[in-house]
Nucleic acid binder design. Structure first.
Lengths: 341, 341
DNA sequence: CTGAAAGCGCTTACAG
DNA sequence: CTGAAAGCGCTTACAG
């Protein structure tokens, strides 16, 4: 067991000063060709690598960013991580992943814990509970300390920072319009409760499309799901008690469950009911029938968020100006088997 | 914009020494009740939090662990992260997630980058490429430097360290036996190429079960999938060109694709073909029909791995003895709709 | 009870 | 060309 070698040890071994070793390794012209080579050879032999922590302390930056997501189980968030990783690694940054588990407290603890030097900035999507409480003091706190934050997907207008979103309203509008264009009028919506920002926006898009086409919205056809546990029953009542020809679901779990329930009730998809989901994940792709869906490019969102964050991090102090952008990522409707042709 | 306050600033403000501040905040009895209170009140007011990086440098440990996984897209790995997070957070550790993208180089770079002080230990599952090359020098290197490593799922006998696995061979044996007990004899296997450790073991379990029941293994019924891109065609030939009554697939993507292809070929699941998958993920649960599967408890594996790693980290140097354990996590067969009753 | 000093591992302005 | 010193932010053994 061979411990990591430090500058000090190399210096001692070669009988020079620590400064000389440090400069030699950074190829400073201050040092004679001769010593430089000697030191470099020795360092290579002992596989010297500078200690990241010492560098972080010295430079007051850690070259590490943190992404906080509500749940890793949602494939969408997993793809965002993937996008963030991709850019971060390319630019020499490490990524710490934190899960808030949809809990406000966990979100706060994570942020406070890491904001003390461990990381240089945050990329985050709000937890359900945070959106419900509308308490963002932990985020303001961090921003006030001069640490950049980029929010994505589940964002809030109450915080001023860079954001990466899709146009949820428009995407939902388009999806609904797509169903209307197929000739459907009895279109149900399976959404989340309204305090989830994206759920609310998607509901609004749906309503707008109906209105635009002079279809009367029917509250019975709108399901707002609160808990993630037994939503299947709610979906079952929705389908059993109403005469529907199509369903728009705001995520793929709801969409695939609608298919299951429809089958159970003896209705075929897409022959009897057409279904559109949201988030182009593996479920939509592999389900039978595969699901027509609004694709929300998670990889791209993650990449964009990482680019924006790193840009802020690498800006020089003097040329810094407080200015925030909101980037809107394009979505598209991926047509598959769950809607009739 | 208010920068983080340091001990130095507090000391200056209160006109005492840095040591006094530090000790007061750690409630040392060395310091008078009076000064302690004064300092603590001031620190609270300014929301002082010690700098993690400085602590890491001082203590020579970062209270951060890294988990390296091949792909986040596989739901199984996502659940392992969740388990690791859970334990780590409880014990005051941060988690860095690295994706190797099944690439040897990325695995090496990630490890080398982080092994220099940033983290205290690794939890990892080998990338495909690493398993194929059988080059583990980066891992030995890290272990030789005294940094603990826990491997899970995709492990290798070539490295001595703690491991968390399931009994892949036995689980596959049981799954196959389950099909045989239903009266099936023409059972196909959809597996990975043999250099993926778990794929190989599962194939062996399948073969053992056949042999045990005097069923002749038929190489035509064994599909070893290499690339993740167009495996659908291979599965289609398998089902189209053979007379099958059941399929055992070593992951859920293969299982759900088999269902899709079977449907396409006009065979019904489970009436015409029964299918068993591996990994109890969301796909298995939400697929129609839902998939009977060997559940591989990712959360538990992650938790166990984290517990083992942190135990090693917190052992005192003197009582340390080189001793490695391999923990086997129980699996179970979850019966659903894709096999006949 | 308080504080100066050394040290974790590094970098860099400055002196010689 | 080389090295001593200061400093990043902290802790702790030691002196007074």
């Amino acid at each position: 067991m061979r411990r990591k070698v430090t500058l000090k040890q190399i210096a001692k071994e070669l009988d020079v000063s620590i400064s000389t070793v440090s400069k030699s390794l950074r190829d400073s012209t201050e040092i004679s060709e001769d010593t430089r080579q000697k030191v470099q050879a020795f360092a290579k032999l002992y596989n010297y690598k500078p200690n990241n922590i010492a560098l972080s302390l010295k430079n007051r930056k850690s070259k590490t960013i943190c992404i906080i997501i509500p749940e890793i189980i949602h494939h969408f968030f997993a793809t965002v991580i993937s996008g963030v990783e991709h850019i971060a690694n390319k630019k020499g940054y490490n990524v710490i992943v934190c899960l808030s588990d949809e809990s406000f407290d966990k979100e706060v603890i994570n942020m406070e814990m890491l904001a003390n030097g461990s990381i240089d900035g945050f990329i985050m999507s709000l937890s359900k509970e945070t959106q419900q409480k509308r308490d963002f003091h932990h985020i303001t706190e961090v921003i006030n300390q001069g640490m950049p934050v980029v929010m994505f997907d589940r964002v809030t207008n109450d915080i001023l920072c860079d954001k990466v979103i899709i146009d949820d309203n428009l995407a939902a509008f388009n999806a609904t319009q797509f169903l209307i264009d197929k000739g459907f009028k009895k279109i149900a919506l399976i959404s989340t409760v309204d305090y989830v920002s994206v759920g609310k926006l998607r509901t609004e898009g749906y309503l707008k499309a109906l209105k635009n086409n002079d279809i009367l919205a029917n509250e019975n056809l709108i399901l707002r799901i609160e808990d993630t546990d037994n939503f299947e029953n709610h979906i079952e009542s929705l389908i059993a008690n109403n005469d529907l020809d199509a369903i728009f679901a705001v995520n793929e779990i709801f969409a695939v469950t609608a298919i299951k329930v429809a089958n159970k009730l003896g209705k075929k998809v897409p022959e009897d009911i057409s279904i559109i989901g949201f988030t182009d994940g593996i479920i939509s792709k592999y389900s039978s029938p595969s699901i027509t869906t609004v694709s929300q490019n998670g990889i791209k969102m993650g990449e964009k968020a990482a680019i924006m964050l790193i840009e802020k991090l690498e800006i020089e102090e003097e040329e810094y100006e407080e200015q925030y952008k909101t980037e809107v990522i394009e979505t598209e409707l991926v047509e598959r088997e769950s809607t009739i042709g």
